Simulated scan of single mutants.
Amino acid sequence: MEYLLREMEEYAVVHHVPIINVKGKAFLIETVAAKRPHRVLEIGTAIGYSSLLIAENSADDIQITTLELNEERAATARKFINHSRYSEQITILLGDAAVNIDTLQDVYDLVFIDAAKGQYLTYFNKILPHLAADGVVVADNVLFRGYVRSSEKPPRRYKTIVTRLKKYIEIVENHPEFETVIHEQGDGLAVSYRRKNIEKT
């Protein structure tokens, strides 16, 4: 598995595919390993790197549904995943995540959001009916290159993304159903625990 992950890291560098950075990876693994989820929804497959990280640290019967808009990336992800022992446990759904979420029937122990940054709040609201009572939502890149919590104005091309990510953080930090921790290392990883989960710990 380590060899496959290294191969994927090299592929991501060569082909300029964004995958979770080293510090974000550590927090993701820590969060997943503590939860040991059985059902996971991932929004944003890319090449399947995070899918495999999650699978490796989940319960043995893990089933992951991962959503990807880009057909070429989804095909690449499938090739990599097929070289792992999780090929039968990871399902890739191609298309607009905001549309595909509405078609889902399962309830998920953990949701990992790593797709269009300007759509995080939309994704969050749509997944709530599918999130277990003690579920966890993990969102990557919420500080977006440091702009989200900087006093300086972001470049114009990032203004909408930064504004929407600030709103996402505001909502999850003040949501009555969740307790949220923002890990600032890396590019910012927001981990939101549904409160039933907190009461148990």
Rank of each mutant, 00 (worst) to 15 (best):
L5K: 08
T122D: 12
N57L: 13
A33I: 08
K25D: 02
R39S: 02
L28M: 10
S51V: 10
G24Y: 04
V137S: 12
N100I: 11
Q105V: 08
I90D: 14
A132H: 05
E71N: 12
V148E: 09
I113T: 10
V138M: 06
N100Q: 10
N141Y: 09
S84A: 10
E71R: 11
K25G: 04
E10T: 03
V142N: 02
V148R: 01
R85W: 08
G146K: 03
K117A: 06
V148D: 01
V99A: 15
L128T: 07
R73N: 08
E71K: 12
L128P: 08
V32Y: 02
R73A: 04
A59I: 04
H130T: 10
G24C: 01
I113L: 06
P129H: 02
E9T: 03
H38E: 11
R36C: 09
D114F: 04
E7S: 15
E56S: 08
T122E: 03
I19V: 09
I19S: 03
V99W: 06
L5D: 05
H38T: 10
I64V: 05
E71C: 09
I20M: 15
A75T: 05
K35P: 01
D134C: 01
T122F: 03
L69V: 01
K126E: 06
D114E: 06
L143M: 10
